[in-house]
Structure formats: C-alpha cells, structure tokens
Simulated assay, not measured.
Amino acid sequence: MYQLENDRLRIEIDAKGAELKTVYSKSFSLDYMWGADPAYWAKTSPVLFPIVGALKGNTYYYEGQLYHLSRHGFARDKAFTVTAQSTDSITFTIESDEDTLQQYPFSFRFSIRYSLIDNELSVSYEVQNKGEGLMFFSVGGHPAFKLPLVEGTHYNDYQLVFEKEETAGRWPISKDGLIEKTPLSLLQQSNVLPLTKELFSKDAVVLKHLQSSWVQLQSDKTPHGFRFYFPNYSFLGLWAAPGADFLCIEPWCGIADSVDTNQQLPQKEGIVQLSTNEAFNVQWRVQFY
C-alpha cells in the first residue's frame, strides 16, 4: 500500500489496480471513502480501462476478429508499477503484455497519477498508443464515497447539486448490463438530485452529455461534503450496491454497449480514438470540506 499526504489530506493507494483505498481529512478527522465491506462491494475505486461497463456477451469485434473482455476491462485487476513519485504526487503505470493482447489487440501504456493540493485530490489518466495504427479505448473512474459522511446523519439527508440546471434522463440498464434505447425522466430544468438508496434499486443512474462540469455532495445537516469536478467526460454514472452506505460518482470517457449494438469496437458509443504515438489525458478532481 502506498501513501501520499500533505497538511490537509492523507490518501492510500493499492498497487493492484492502482486503486484508491483511503481519503482521510486531517483537518476534519474524517474518512471520505467507502470501507469496502465485502458483504456489499469489496472495492473502493476501481479504474475502468480499456472499456467502461459491459459488452454484449462480453464480446466485441475488431478487424474481423472476435475478442472477449469482462465488465470494465482488465486494468482494475492488474499490478501497477510506480513510475514517478514526489512529495505531492505518485504515478502508477501498466503496459500491454501477452495477456492483454489476447483480450485487446493494442499496444499501450496506461498511467494514473494521484496528486494532492491543499484539500483537493486530483486523479489523472494518461493513455498512450504504442502500436501501429489507430487504438480504440474507453477509460473512467469509479470512486465510492462513504454516505452518510458523518455520524448523526442519514443517506436521505444528502443531495447532489450540479453546477448548472440540467434536463437529463437516466438511461436504464438491462439485466445484461447494457444501455436501453430510451431514457427515463430524472432531471427537468433542475440542478438538485436528492439521494436515496431506492434511486439505485435498478442499477446505476447513467447520464449523458451533461452541461455541468462539477457536482457537489452536500446536506443541510452537516457542513461537510465535497465538490467533484469531471470536465471533458461525456458520461457520468452514479451507483451504490443495494442497501450499502456509499455513493459512487463515476466519470466516463465511454459507456456500456447499447442493447442494439453491432459489437464493432470502432463504432461503439463514446469510444476514444488515438493515433500512433499520441497520448490522451483526462482528469477528475475532488475538493473535500
């Protein structure tokens, strides 16, 4: 387990999956991350690469060949190597190998950089195409925050407040983990989403192409919460396991297959295209208070 800290925050990261395990505020003596209770969900913040969500039949096609990838891809189960470290940041990296090439026929280098500045955590993803020809991928985060945050409050005491008023439906998820064709009403010229455990009774809330670049978790029962920045992400997922005391806020460059997908990787919704020797960079940030 690797640790990074400043005067305000302390974080811990596991080399397996380069997974963020702990965010502790020294200022408030407060843990913000879900405790990974295996009775509900044994992870805290898996990284999603080289796909986000599920593929139809865990299968896709590329240049006439059939490949299999499980939900969210393989990066979350890989052993990352620390490739850079300073007093305020640490970078973890994996590269393509024989195992990945059987599932995903692209040569890549994938790095995750964690940085602390005052009361803010920044998580940056860099994907490099190390092969010949175009590379197709998705990438995203899946951090789970403890909810309720403080003793004496309840799940329903909290709400998400978006930067801008949104008119956005939630895209239902089929029993196979695929995106249905018609959204359900969720936000109608509103920037407030009250949180309840029932909100996630039918899997994640999937949002597309929001106007907002941040969302804030807050409650009138406590001064504590956080603001989550997700600029340059086309999709946002919100999720909690049934009955669990956490909330995942998931910024995605990519999305699960639709129910009517043709399973061709280059035509997949939200897929990112990267030329030889090019790099793709994206970041999400959280300010804790």
Results as ranks from 00 to 15, higher is better:
V272T: 13
I94S: 03
L147K: 04
L247D: 12
T153Q: 00
S275H: 05
L134I: 10
T44F: 05
I112P: 12
R10H: 00
M33A: 02
R71D: 07
Y67W: 12
K164F: 00
L236F: 01
G169K: 01
E5N: 12
A244V: 09
L184Y: 00
L210I: 11
F280R: 05
A15N: 15
D220I: 05
W34N: 10
I271A: 08
N277F: 12
W171M: 05
A279K: 14
D260E: 14
Q264R: 08
S96Q: 08
R10F: 06
L247M: 11
K26W: 10
F200Y: 09
V150H: 05
F288Y: 05
D88K: 14
L187I: 04
F74N: 07
E250K: 12
Q159W: 10
D203V: 07
L160H: 05
I255K: 09
V23K: 08
I112D: 07
D14N: 01
A15P: 15
E166I: 13
E63R: 08
L66N: 03
Y60R: 02
I179G: 03
V286D: 05
P46I: 01
A84P: 03
F288V: 02
R113W: 01
W214N: 13
E269Y: 06
T196I: 06
N6K: 00
G243M: 01
L247T: 00
P143A: 04
Q128F: 08
L199Q: 06
N119S: 13
N119F: 00
E19Y: 13
Q65A: 09
T87W: 04
V286N: 13
W34C: 03
T83Y: 01
N156L: 13
S70Q: 06
D88V: 11
E19F: 13
L69E: 09
P266A: 05
P231H: 08
P148A: 10
S96W: 07
R8H: 14
H142T: 06
Q273F: 06
S25A: 10
Y24K: 01
Q189N: 05
Y233C: 09
E120W: 06
Y289V: 11
L187E: 01
K16W: 11
Q65K: 15
F162K: 00
T196S: 14
V82R: 11
E63P: 08
P242I: 03
S190V: 11
A256C: 13
F108K: 03
L101T: 00
D176I: 07
H209D: 12
Y125N: 06
